[in-house]
Design a protein around this nucleic acid. Sequence first.
DNA 1: CCTTGACCTTCCAGCGACTGGAAGCCCTAT
DNA 2: ATAGGGCTTCCAGTCGCTGGAAGGTCAAGG
Lengths: 130, 130
Amino acid sequence: MNIGDVAQKAGLPPKTIRYYEDIGLITPLRDTNGYRVFRESDLHKLAFLGRARALGFTIEDCRTLLALYEDDTRASADVKELAQAHLAKIEDKIAQLESMRGTLSDLVKSCAGDNRPDCPILSDLATGQH
Amino acid sequence: MNIGDVAQKAGLPPKTIRYYEDIGLITPLRDTNGYRVFRESDLHKLAFLGRARALGFTIEDCRTLLALYEDDTRASADVKELAQAHLAKIEDKIAQLESMRGTLSDLVKSCAGDNRPDCPILSDLATGQH
DNA sequence: CCTTGACCTTCCAGCGACTGGAAGCCCTAT
DNA sequence: ATAGGGCTTCCAGTCGCTGGAAGGTCAAGG
């Protein structure tokens, strides 16, 4: 398989796949013309990576997850720990964003949004007082 | 005021303040020795920027907000529009993260987290099937 | 056989918003 | 005189790609 095919099947852009090779996540073979040749195992890894990335794992997490996946003697506890730590970070970020949303939506509601210059959004930013 | 003082008062690291000068958000004066000299108005702007950044506005949004703030003839509608667009982005991001959280917390729950290698988290990543 | 166009290759630069570190000047206190 | 802290600039790195340039390769059509 060439990069275009595998990109389509894995749902990842060719650029991303080349990048993953660069950083050593995959190591496809090479044809005599220099083209990358992907095995089924490469495709499988790419799909794995795509799903892990879609869950928000960092590239380094993905590297670890792949290594765990390929290690028959892994302990599921290690995987779970990684996932839990990641989940905690996501929950932190959600909390942050929800706090922003709260403040912002209050501000938006309180702003007339007309031709006049008076604007509680700017006043709040200027003074930190609501 | 020197950069250290203003950093403390504005709650921003000196590095960030220098960066804000680099990109033209503020233009402090200079002492004969080359040190930056901050006026009250600079401090005020920095505090404004700190609050806007804390609400998640991009630097370019902040630039626009500052300009609106300093324009007596602004229409509050312009500010509101910017804030609303930003709010929408935040809500999108929250939705994304919540979807991740949902999947991840299911996976974490389903994983024994013991010494055995069997792990639904890895199976899910490998196959995309739960 | 030649051309066209789609694919592939590498390499370099840029995104956003800083942050770390090096090298060196300045100022104050002892 | 020296020690320390603070200030300066500049360069590089973060993260995960993404865009673009310059050029090689391949299959189909004329």
